[in-house]
């Protein structure tokens, strides 16, 4: 039962004699709808054929595994991303590296794109900026298995997207999304300034102890 004090009374706006017939309002309404029906441009984007500009340049889409300048996979299999991942969608199998400049490399690197929440934590965690999120969002597959991206596929994504968005490392070198160029430039300047101000070796202490715990 509603108590009397809780009842809100809204004073009705005064209507003129003409308003009480509601005919003028109805006529106005019909005018508006007819106008929209016949004369207003239709704003629907016909998606697969035409794509809208992304509203942000750092859109977080599908992942890629970057290649280093020698076309090798840049990942060092440090398990930082797998540890950082809140959705537990990254699975790495590490192996001894055949190359001189690093100890390990990923023998297998799977990301379950269906499980991923596209938070970008892996990108933040990566010490060598090997894993990155691209601006590609229209990924499709016909089965769940197909949506688990392995190393080849992720490298392939890099090959396809490196022209639009070059690898960040060693310096922030320009997102080149489908977005507004001018806005992007401002953003990059701001980012570079921020990176320049940051002290080197600031916080890299956590994350090492869980390395083998999550690897399966």
């Amino acid at each position: 039962m509603i108590s009397d004090a809780d009842i809100i009374l809204i004073k009705e706006p005064k209507l003129s004699a003409a308003d009480k017939l509601y005919l003028t309002q109805i006529a106005e309404g019909v005018k508006v709808t007819l106008n929209h029906l016949f004369f207003k441009p239709k704003v629907t984007v016909q998606y697969p054929e035409e794509k809208r500009k992304l509203r942000v340049d750092n859109y977080r889409g599908v992942h890629r595994l970057n290649r280093d300048p020698d076309d090798r996979v840049a990942c060092v299999a440090c398990f930082m991303c797998e540890t950082a991942c809140p959705a537990h969608c990254i699975h790495i199998v590490a192996a001894e590296s055949p190359w001189e400049d690093r100890e390990k490399y990923p023998q297998q690197f799977d990301i379950d794109e269906l499980r991923c929440i596209y938070c970008g934590m892996c990108e933040e965690a990566c010490p060598v900026d090997a894993i990155e999120l691209t601006t590609e969002y229209d990924i499709v597959g016909q089965s769940r298995d197909e949506m688990i991206f392995d190393k080849e596929k992720l490298l392939n994504v890099y090959d396809q997207t490196k022209d639009i968005k070059p690898r960040k490392n060693p310096k922030i070198s320009g997102y080149q999304g489908t977005g507004d160029r001018e806005k992007y430039d401002q953003l990059r300047e701001r980012l570079e300034k921020m990176v320049g101000e940051r002290e080197p070796g600031e916080s890299k202490s956590t994350g090492t102890e869980a390395t083998e715990g999550n690897a399966q």
């Binding site: 929209h36 207003k40 239709k42």
Partner: peptide, 9 residues
């Protein structure tokens, strides 16, 4: 018609 009135396709 509903779409056109709402500026859709």
């Amino acid at each position: 018609i509903s779409a056109w009135i709402q500026d859709r396709q």
